[in-house]
Design a protein around this nucleic acid. Structure first.
Lengths: 206, 206
DNA sequence: GTCTATACTCTGATAGAC
DNA sequence: GTCTATCAGAGTATAGAC
Protein backbone atom coordinates (compact mmCIF):
# COMPACT_ATOMS: atom_id res chain seq x y z
CA UNK A 1 0.00 0.00 0.00
CA UNK A 2 3.00 2.27 0.13
CA UNK A 3 2.55 5.03 -2.40
CA UNK A 4 6.28 5.56 -2.87
CA UNK A 5 7.31 5.12 -6.46
CA UNK A 6 10.69 3.58 -5.62
CA UNK A 7 10.35 1.36 -2.58
CA UNK A 8 13.13 1.96 -0.10
CA UNK A 9 13.30 1.07 3.52
CA UNK A 10 12.62 3.84 5.97
CA UNK A 11 16.27 3.74 6.99
CA UNK A 12 17.40 4.16 3.40
CA UNK A 13 14.97 6.95 2.80
CA UNK A 14 16.03 8.70 5.97
CA UNK A 15 19.75 8.36 5.32
CA UNK A 16 19.44 9.59 1.76
CA UNK A 17 17.64 12.64 3.08
CA UNK A 18 20.27 13.18 5.77
CA UNK A 19 23.00 13.02 3.15
CA UNK A 20 21.27 15.34 0.69
CA UNK A 21 20.55 17.86 3.42
CA UNK A 22 24.15 17.76 4.61
CA UNK A 23 25.42 18.00 1.04
CA UNK A 24 23.21 21.02 0.39
CA UNK A 25 24.67 22.67 3.47
CA UNK A 26 28.28 22.04 2.42
CA UNK A 27 28.04 22.46 -1.38
CA UNK A 28 26.11 25.72 -1.00
CA UNK A 29 28.89 27.20 1.10
CA UNK A 30 31.98 25.68 -0.51
CA UNK A 31 31.02 24.96 -4.11
CA UNK A 32 31.54 21.55 -5.68
CA UNK A 33 35.31 21.35 -5.60
CA UNK A 34 35.58 23.09 -2.24
CA UNK A 35 33.29 20.62 -0.52
CA UNK A 36 34.62 17.31 0.79
CA UNK A 37 32.89 14.01 1.46
CA UNK A 38 34.35 14.14 4.98
CA UNK A 39 32.49 17.38 5.69
CA UNK A 40 29.26 16.08 4.22
CA UNK A 41 29.51 12.78 6.09
CA UNK A 42 30.19 14.57 9.36
CA UNK A 43 27.22 16.93 8.96
CA UNK A 44 25.04 13.95 8.04
CA UNK A 45 26.28 12.02 11.06
CA UNK A 46 27.47 9.10 8.96
CA UNK A 47 30.82 7.61 8.09
CA UNK A 48 32.31 8.40 4.72
CA UNK A 49 32.09 4.81 3.40
CA UNK A 50 28.51 4.68 4.58
CA UNK A 51 27.75 7.82 2.62
CA UNK A 52 29.29 6.18 -0.44
CA UNK A 53 27.02 3.21 0.10
CA UNK A 54 24.04 5.46 -0.66
CA UNK A 55 25.61 7.47 -3.46
CA UNK A 56 28.28 6.02 -5.75
CA UNK A 57 30.30 9.24 -5.94
CA UNK A 58 30.58 12.87 -4.92
CA UNK A 59 29.42 13.84 -8.37
CA UNK A 60 26.23 11.81 -7.96
CA UNK A 61 25.36 13.54 -4.70
CA UNK A 62 25.77 16.89 -6.39
CA UNK A 63 23.71 15.86 -9.39
CA UNK A 64 20.93 14.62 -7.13
CA UNK A 65 20.79 18.10 -5.60
CA UNK A 66 20.79 19.99 -8.89
CA UNK A 67 18.14 17.77 -10.43
CA UNK A 68 14.88 19.45 -9.81
CA UNK A 69 16.45 22.57 -8.34
CA UNK A 70 15.89 24.61 -11.49
CA UNK A 71 12.26 23.49 -11.63
CA UNK A 72 11.67 24.58 -8.04
CA UNK A 73 13.40 27.83 -8.79
CA UNK A 74 11.28 28.56 -11.85
CA UNK A 75 7.90 27.49 -10.47
CA UNK A 76 7.07 30.99 -9.18
CA UNK A 77 7.57 32.40 -12.68
CA UNK A 78 5.49 29.61 -14.25
CA UNK A 79 2.59 30.63 -12.04
CA UNK A 80 2.49 34.14 -13.48
CA UNK A 81 -0.82 34.08 -15.33
CA UNK A 82 -1.40 35.90 -18.59
CA UNK A 83 -5.11 36.08 -17.75
CA UNK A 84 -4.64 37.79 -14.38
CA UNK A 85 -4.33 41.43 -13.46
CA UNK A 86 -0.83 42.41 -14.67
CA UNK A 87 0.55 44.32 -11.69
CA UNK A 88 -0.90 41.81 -9.22
CA UNK A 89 0.60 38.92 -11.19
CA UNK A 90 4.05 40.51 -11.26
CA UNK A 91 3.94 41.45 -7.58
CA UNK A 92 2.81 37.91 -6.79
CA UNK A 93 5.83 36.60 -8.65
CA UNK A 94 8.17 38.93 -6.76
CA UNK A 95 6.57 37.85 -3.49
CA UNK A 96 6.89 34.12 -4.24
CA UNK A 97 10.50 34.52 -5.38
CA UNK A 98 11.40 36.45 -2.24
CA UNK A 99 9.70 33.84 -0.06
CA UNK A 100 11.71 31.17 -1.82
CA UNK A 101 14.94 33.07 -1.13
CA UNK A 102 13.95 33.45 2.52
CA UNK A 103 12.89 29.84 3.05
CA UNK A 104 15.51 28.12 0.89
CA UNK A 105 18.68 30.22 1.06
CA UNK A 106 20.92 27.16 0.71
CA UNK A 107 19.26 26.21 -2.56
CA UNK A 108 19.73 29.79 -3.73
CA UNK A 109 23.43 29.72 -2.87
CA UNK A 110 23.88 26.31 -4.50
CA UNK A 111 22.42 27.77 -7.67
CA UNK A 112 24.56 30.91 -7.37
CA UNK A 113 27.69 28.81 -6.97
CA UNK A 114 26.85 26.81 -10.06
CA UNK A 115 26.30 29.93 -12.20
CA UNK A 116 29.36 31.71 -10.80
CA UNK A 117 31.47 28.77 -11.89
CA UNK A 118 30.13 29.05 -15.41
CA UNK A 119 27.24 26.57 -14.99
CA UNK A 120 29.37 23.51 -15.89
CA UNK A 121 26.61 21.14 -14.75
CA UNK A 122 23.54 23.20 -15.69
CA UNK A 123 24.33 24.85 -18.99
CA UNK A 124 21.93 22.72 -20.92
CA UNK A 125 19.00 23.37 -18.60
CA UNK A 126 19.69 27.10 -18.61
CA UNK A 127 19.93 27.38 -22.37
CA UNK A 128 16.84 25.18 -22.73
CA UNK A 129 14.07 25.20 -20.13
CA UNK A 130 15.07 28.47 -18.50
CA UNK A 131 15.41 30.40 -21.71
CA UNK A 132 12.14 29.07 -23.13
CA UNK A 133 10.18 29.99 -20.00
CA UNK A 134 11.62 33.49 -19.89
CA UNK A 135 10.87 34.01 -23.56
CA UNK A 136 7.29 32.89 -23.03
CA UNK A 137 6.74 35.16 -20.04
CA UNK A 138 8.48 38.04 -21.79
CA UNK A 139 5.80 37.84 -24.47
CA UNK A 140 3.12 38.00 -21.78
CA UNK A 141 4.77 41.07 -20.26
CA UNK A 142 5.13 42.70 -23.67
CA UNK A 143 1.44 42.17 -24.38
CA UNK A 144 0.52 43.82 -21.08
CA UNK A 145 2.73 46.77 -21.96
CA UNK A 146 1.21 47.14 -25.43
CA UNK A 147 -2.25 47.12 -23.87
CA UNK A 148 -1.08 49.97 -21.63
CA UNK A 149 -1.79 47.99 -18.46
CA UNK A 150 1.79 48.35 -17.18
CA UNK A 151 4.52 50.79 -18.14
CA UNK A 152 6.93 49.92 -20.90
CA UNK A 153 10.29 48.46 -19.96
CA UNK A 154 12.52 45.70 -21.35
CA UNK A 155 10.65 42.55 -20.26
CA UNK A 156 13.66 40.22 -20.06
CA UNK A 157 15.67 42.68 -18.00
CA UNK A 158 12.60 43.10 -15.81
CA UNK A 159 12.80 39.39 -15.07
CA UNK A 160 16.55 39.69 -14.45
CA UNK A 161 15.88 42.50 -11.99
CA UNK A 162 13.42 40.34 -10.05
CA UNK A 163 15.96 37.54 -9.87
CA UNK A 164 18.80 39.85 -8.86
CA UNK A 165 16.84 41.70 -6.19
CA UNK A 166 15.31 38.66 -4.52
CA UNK A 167 18.29 36.31 -4.67
CA UNK A 168 20.58 39.02 -3.36
CA UNK A 169 18.94 38.71 0.05
CA UNK A 170 19.73 34.99 0.20
CA UNK A 171 23.13 34.92 -1.49
CA UNK A 172 24.55 38.05 0.17
CA UNK A 173 22.77 37.48 3.46
CA UNK A 174 25.98 37.90 5.46
CA UNK A 175 26.65 41.29 3.90
CA UNK A 176 23.05 42.44 4.20
CA UNK A 177 22.93 41.62 7.91
CA UNK A 178 26.34 43.14 8.57
CA UNK A 179 25.29 46.43 6.99
CA UNK A 180 21.84 46.55 8.57
CA UNK A 181 23.10 45.60 11.99
CA UNK A 182 21.02 43.81 14.63
CA UNK A 183 17.31 44.41 15.12
CA UNK A 184 16.40 44.12 11.46
CA UNK A 185 14.37 41.60 9.48
CA UNK A 186 16.01 41.80 6.04
CA UNK A 187 13.37 39.82 4.19
CA UNK A 188 10.44 41.69 5.71
CA UNK A 189 12.03 45.01 4.84
CA UNK A 190 12.91 43.76 1.37
CA UNK A 191 9.26 42.83 0.81
CA UNK A 192 8.15 46.41 1.40
CA UNK A 193 10.98 47.90 -0.58
CA UNK A 194 10.44 45.67 -3.61
CA UNK A 195 6.72 46.36 -3.61
CA UNK A 196 7.45 50.08 -3.78
CA UNK A 197 10.12 49.61 -6.42
CA UNK A 198 8.09 47.52 -8.84
CA UNK A 199 4.92 49.52 -8.30
CA UNK A 200 6.69 52.74 -9.28
CA UNK A 201 8.54 51.07 -12.15
CA UNK A 202 5.45 49.52 -13.66
CA UNK A 203 2.61 51.91 -12.85
CA UNK A 204 0.95 52.80 -16.18
CA UNK A 205 2.30 56.15 -17.31
CA UNK A 206 -0.21 59.00 -17.28
CA UNK B 1 71.43 55.86 -21.17
CA UNK B 2 69.55 55.38 -17.92
CA UNK B 3 70.66 51.99 -16.67
CA UNK B 4 68.03 49.83 -15.10
CA UNK B 5 68.24 50.58 -11.46
CA UNK B 6 66.69 47.36 -10.18
CA UNK B 7 66.29 44.78 -12.95
CA UNK B 8 65.39 41.98 -10.56
CA UNK B 9 62.64 44.07 -9.12
CA UNK B 10 61.13 44.50 -12.55
CA UNK B 11 61.04 40.76 -13.18
CA UNK B 12 59.57 40.25 -9.78
CA UNK B 13 56.96 42.89 -10.47
CA UNK B 14 55.98 41.25 -13.73
CA UNK B 15 55.77 37.75 -12.30
CA UNK B 16 53.80 38.90 -9.30
CA UNK B 17 51.33 40.48 -11.68
CA UNK B 18 51.15 37.33 -13.80
CA UNK B 19 50.44 35.28 -10.69
CA UNK B 20 47.83 37.63 -9.29
CA UNK B 21 46.05 37.81 -12.62
CA UNK B 22 46.02 34.01 -12.93
CA UNK B 23 44.90 33.65 -9.33
CA UNK B 24 42.05 36.09 -9.91
CA UNK B 25 40.97 34.02 -12.89
CA UNK B 26 40.98 30.76 -10.93
CA UNK B 27 39.78 31.91 -7.50
CA UNK B 28 36.88 33.85 -9.05
CA UNK B 29 35.63 30.71 -10.76
CA UNK B 30 36.44 28.04 -8.18
CA UNK B 31 36.46 29.80 -4.83
CA UNK B 32 39.38 29.54 -2.44
CA UNK B 33 39.18 25.85 -1.63
CA UNK B 34 38.21 24.82 -5.13
CA UNK B 35 41.21 26.53 -6.70
CA UNK B 36 44.58 24.76 -6.87
CA UNK B 37 48.10 26.11 -7.11
CA UNK B 38 48.62 23.88 -10.13
CA UNK B 39 45.82 25.63 -12.00
CA UNK B 40 47.07 29.07 -11.03
CA UNK B 41 50.65 28.24 -11.97
CA UNK B 42 49.58 26.88 -15.33
CA UNK B 43 47.48 29.95 -16.18
CA UNK B 44 50.38 32.16 -15.08
CA UNK B 45 52.79 30.15 -17.21
CA UNK B 46 55.06 29.35 -14.26
CA UNK B 47 55.95 26.25 -12.35
CA UNK B 48 54.32 25.64 -8.99
CA UNK B 49 57.56 25.99 -7.01
CA UNK B 50 58.29 29.19 -8.88
CA UNK B 51 54.88 30.53 -7.92
CA UNK B 52 55.67 29.70 -4.31
CA UNK B 53 58.91 31.60 -4.65
CA UNK B 54 56.87 34.79 -5.08
CA UNK B 55 54.15 34.04 -2.56
CA UNK B 56 54.78 31.93 0.53
CA UNK B 57 51.41 30.17 0.43
CA UNK B 58 48.08 29.83 -1.32
CA UNK B 59 46.50 31.84 1.46
CA UNK B 60 48.90 34.75 0.82
CA UNK B 61 47.99 34.89 -2.86
CA UNK B 62 44.33 35.06 -1.97
CA UNK B 63 44.90 37.72 0.67
CA UNK B 64 46.87 39.81 -1.81
CA UNK B 65 43.84 39.76 -4.10
CA UNK B 66 41.30 40.62 -1.43
CA UNK B 67 43.40 43.45 -0.02
CA UNK B 68 42.22 46.56 -1.72
CA UNK B 69 39.35 44.84 -3.51
CA UNK B 70 36.74 46.23 -1.13
CA UNK B 71 38.17 49.73 -1.53
CA UNK B 72 37.96 49.50 -5.31
CA UNK B 73 34.47 48.15 -5.00
CA UNK B 74 33.30 50.98 -2.74
CA UNK B 75 34.98 53.87 -4.54
CA UNK B 76 31.96 54.54 -6.78
CA UNK B 77 29.78 54.95 -3.70
CA UNK B 78 32.35 57.20 -2.02
CA UNK B 79 32.15 59.54 -4.97
CA UNK B 80 28.42 60.15 -4.46
CA UNK B 81 28.42 63.81 -3.45
CA UNK B 82 26.00 65.24 -0.90
CA UNK B 83 26.39 68.65 -2.56
CA UNK B 84 25.43 67.45 -6.04
CA UNK B 85 22.07 67.12 -7.74
CA UNK B 86 20.48 64.05 -6.07
CA UNK B 87 19.15 62.10 -9.04
CA UNK B 88 22.28 62.78 -11.09
CA UNK B 89 24.49 61.68 -8.21
CA UNK B 90 22.57 58.42 -7.76
CA UNK B 91 22.49 57.69 -11.47
CA UNK B 92 26.21 58.43 -11.62
CA UNK B 93 26.75 55.89 -8.89
CA UNK B 94 24.68 53.28 -10.73
CA UNK B 95 26.60 54.01 -13.91
CA UNK B 96 30.01 53.68 -12.24
CA UNK B 97 29.01 50.49 -10.46
CA UNK B 98 27.74 48.93 -13.69
CA UNK B 99 30.93 49.94 -15.52
CA UNK B 100 32.91 48.27 -12.76
CA UNK B 101 30.89 45.08 -13.15
CA UNK B 102 31.42 45.17 -16.91
CA UNK B 103 35.15 45.91 -16.78
CA UNK B 104 36.07 43.79 -13.76
CA UNK B 105 33.74 40.78 -13.72
CA UNK B 106 36.40 38.53 -12.18
CA UNK B 107 36.77 40.87 -9.23
CA UNK B 108 33.00 40.88 -8.85
CA UNK B 109 32.87 37.10 -8.83
CA UNK B 110 35.78 36.88 -6.39
CA UNK B 111 33.82 39.12 -4.05
CA UNK B 112 30.63 37.14 -4.60
CA UNK B 113 32.42 33.90 -3.81
CA UNK B 114 33.76 35.37 -0.59
CA UNK B 115 30.33 36.56 0.57
CA UNK B 116 28.58 33.34 -0.50
CA UNK B 117 30.99 31.42 1.70
CA UNK B 118 30.09 33.58 4.67
CA UNK B 119 32.88 36.16 4.22
CA UNK B 120 35.44 34.17 6.26
CA UNK B 121 38.27 36.46 5.15
CA UNK B 122 36.38 39.75 4.86
CA UNK B 123 33.97 39.83 7.77
CA UNK B 124 35.86 42.52 9.58
CA UNK B 125 36.03 44.85 6.59
CA UNK B 126 32.34 44.35 5.86
CA UNK B 127 31.22 45.03 9.40
CA UNK B 128 33.60 47.99 9.59
CA UNK B 129 34.43 50.08 6.51
CA UNK B 130 31.52 48.87 4.40
CA UNK B 131 28.91 49.41 7.06
CA UNK B 132 30.21 52.86 7.98
CA UNK B 133 30.23 54.04 4.38
CA UNK B 134 26.69 52.80 3.75
CA UNK B 135 25.46 54.44 6.95
CA UNK B 136 27.03 57.72 5.90
CA UNK B 137 25.55 57.64 2.42
CA UNK B 138 22.18 56.52 3.77
CA UNK B 139 22.08 59.76 5.77
CA UNK B 140 22.80 61.72 2.60
CA UNK B 141 19.99 59.90 0.79
CA UNK B 142 17.61 60.45 3.70
CA UNK B 143 18.36 64.18 3.70
CA UNK B 144 17.59 64.37 -0.02
CA UNK B 145 14.30 62.59 0.60
CA UNK B 146 13.34 64.91 3.43
CA UNK B 147 14.06 67.87 1.20
CA UNK B 148 11.66 66.36 -1.33
CA UNK B 149 14.36 66.17 -4.00
CA UNK B 150 13.91 62.42 -4.51
CA UNK B 151 11.06 60.13 -3.60
CA UNK B 152 11.02 58.39 -0.24
CA UNK B 153 12.31 54.84 -0.04
CA UNK B 154 14.43 52.87 2.43
CA UNK B 155 17.92 54.28 1.73
CA UNK B 156 19.92 51.19 2.76
CA UNK B 157 17.78 48.87 0.67
CA UNK B 158 18.16 51.34 -2.16
CA UNK B 159 21.91 50.80 -1.94
CA UNK B 160 21.37 47.02 -1.77
CA UNK B 161 19.26 47.23 -4.91
CA UNK B 162 22.03 49.03 -6.78
CA UNK B 163 24.54 46.39 -5.73
CA UNK B 164 22.21 43.52 -6.60
CA UNK B 165 21.21 44.88 -10.01
CA UNK B 166 24.70 45.81 -11.19
CA UNK B 167 26.63 42.84 -9.83
CA UNK B 168 24.04 40.44 -11.21
CA UNK B 169 25.27 41.20 -14.74
CA UNK B 170 28.82 40.22 -13.81
CA UNK B 171 28.17 37.31 -11.44
CA UNK B 172 25.36 35.69 -13.45
CA UNK B 173 26.83 36.62 -16.82
CA UNK B 174 26.52 33.06 -18.11
CA UNK B 175 22.83 32.94 -17.29
CA UNK B 176 22.14 36.42 -18.64
CA UNK B 177 23.76 35.62 -21.99
CA UNK B 178 22.09 32.21 -22.20
CA UNK B 179 18.65 33.77 -21.73
CA UNK B 180 19.24 36.76 -24.02
CA UNK B 181 20.80 34.66 -26.75
CA UNK B 182 23.33 35.96 -29.28
CA UNK B 183 23.26 39.47 -30.69
CA UNK B 184 22.81 41.21 -27.38
CA UNK B 185 25.03 43.53 -25.35
CA UNK B 186 23.90 42.77 -21.78
CA UNK B 187 25.69 45.68 -20.12
CA UNK B 188 24.53 48.26 -22.66
CA UNK B 189 20.94 47.09 -22.29
CA UNK B 190 21.29 47.00 -18.51
CA UNK B 191 22.44 50.61 -18.56
CA UNK B 192 19.24 51.73 -20.22
CA UNK B 193 17.05 49.52 -18.08
CA UNK B 194 18.60 50.67 -14.81
CA UNK B 195 18.32 54.30 -15.79
CA UNK B 196 14.60 53.82 -16.35
CA UNK B 197 14.20 51.84 -13.16
CA UNK B 198 15.89 54.28 -10.82
CA UNK B 199 14.41 57.32 -12.52
CA UNK B 200 10.89 56.01 -11.96
CA UNK B 201 11.69 54.81 -8.45
CA UNK B 202 13.18 58.10 -7.31
CA UNK B 203 11.33 60.77 -9.28
CA UNK B 204 9.92 63.22 -6.70
CA UNK B 205 6.26 62.33 -6.13
CA UNK B 206 3.74 64.89 -7.40
C1' DG C 1 23.93 -1.52 6.42
C1' DT C 2 27.82 -0.01 8.73
C1' DC C 3 32.38 -0.14 10.01
C1' DT C 4 37.86 -0.36 9.74
C1' DA C 5 41.52 -0.48 6.81
C1' DT C 6 43.58 0.83 2.83
C1' DA C 7 44.65 1.91 -2.18
C1' DC C 8 45.62 5.60 -4.91
C1' DT C 9 45.48 10.37 -6.50
C1' DC C 10 45.72 15.23 -5.76
C1' DT C 11 47.51 19.17 -3.44
C1' DG C 12 50.31 22.48 -0.74
C1' DA C 13 54.73 23.13 0.37
C1' DT C 14 59.99 22.25 0.75
C1' DA C 15 64.88 20.82 -0.63
C1' DG C 16 68.45 21.42 -3.36
C1' DA C 17 70.76 21.47 -8.08
C1' DC C 18 71.84 24.82 -11.59
C1' DG D 1 65.15 32.85 -10.24
C1' DT D 2 63.79 28.62 -12.00
C1' DC D 3 63.80 23.89 -12.22
C1' DT D 4 63.30 18.60 -10.82
C1' DA D 5 62.35 15.76 -7.20
C1' DT D 6 59.94 14.80 -3.35
C1' DC D 7 57.34 14.77 1.05
C1' DA D 8 53.27 14.85 4.08
C1' DG D 9 48.58 15.31 4.37
C1' DA D 10 44.03 15.48 2.47
C1' DG D 11 40.70 13.55 -0.55
C1' DT D 12 37.91 10.08 -3.35
C1' DA D 13 36.85 5.65 -3.58
C1' DT D 14 37.11 0.45 -2.70
C1' DA D 15 37.73 -4.10 -0.10
C1' DG D 16 36.19 -6.87 3.09
C1' DA D 17 34.93 -8.03 8.03
C1' DC D 18 30.88 -8.04 10.86
Amino acid sequence: MSPTARPRSRIQQRNRELILDAALEVFSLQGFRGATLDQIAEVAGLSKPNLLYYFPSKEEVHTALLTGLLDTWLDPLREMDAQGEPLAEIMGYVRRKLDLARDFPRESRLFANEILQGAPRMREAIEGDLRRLVDEKARVLTAWMEEGRIARVDPVHLVFSIWALTQHYADFDVQVRAVLGPGHDPFAEAGGFLETLFTRLLAPQG
